[in-house]
């Protein structure tokens, strides 16, 4: 039963990821795309957490943590580039 519910959750998060992809393609501005990509990072963490429960393994968490850190740093780096035209001043 739990496995079935979790499969339903996979579908829901998958739909969310597709919506993000649509938003990233549609734009219209760079910042819109950046926001969509950042949301995609977070949604993939959600998917990994659900997959961890589904398989009953805690190996995924380190991957999730790495994605969280890389997503944050890359988003902030691109924002700084848009603001200043340079990342490290």
């Amino acid at each position: 039963m739990l496995a079935l519910i979790l499969q339903g959750c996979f579908v829901v998060v998958g739909v969310a990821l597709v919506l993000n992809l649509y938003a990233a393609i549609r734009g219209p501005s760079v910042v819109d795309r950046l926001l969509a990509l950042d949301t995609m990072y977070i949604n993939s963490i959600a998917l990994l957490l659900l997959y961890g429960i589904y398989l009953g393994t805690s190996l995924n968490f380190e991957v999730a943590l790495l994605i969280a850190m890389l997503g944050f740093v890359s988003t902030v780096a691109v924002c700084k580039f848009l603001l200043r035209g340079d990342i490290i001043e």
Binding site: C9, V12, V13, V15, A16, L17, L19, N20, A23, L35, A36, T39, I42, N43, A46, L50
Partner: peptide, 11 residues
């Protein structure tokens, strides 16, 4: 999952 979906719908 529903909250995550709502975030993307808002997007």
């Amino acid at each position: 999952s529903l909250f995550v979906l709502m975030g993307s719908v808002a997007l």
